[in-house]
Amino acid sequence: MSEDVKVLSIEAKLGLDVFDVDKEPHITVDFSICETCEQKHCLYVCPAKLYQLEDGKLTYNYEGCLECGSCLIACDKKAVKWNYPRGGFGVQYRFG
């Protein structure tokens, strides 16, 4: 049977969205706090999977951020410093 429902990777899904990425990140993560964090809730709540573990270390990339706010709410350690991108930058929904 041919694949009627295509399985899309998260990278492919984000590739469908229009972004106007600012030079300055609108979200910054204090990784020194993350080093002491066992739970790392951010890994689960980000719909864009922008929080990743590489060799046991947390990484974050603000490009591809959908500006949903989940990581801000999920982080108990207050390691996430959150702002909206500057006016006009960030995700641009065509449908929403």
Partner: peptide, 29 residues
């Protein structure tokens, strides 16, 4: 959470409803 979306899409009776559809945008809030 992104995996939950894929899980839902693959349900046998959801799959039928979205059959041959093309995803054109992905959003969250």
């Amino acid at each position: 959470v992104a995996d939950v979306v894929e899980h839902f899409k693959r349900h046998p009776f959801v799959k039928r409803l979205i059959k041959k559809g093309n995803t054109i945008e992905y959003s969250a809030h």
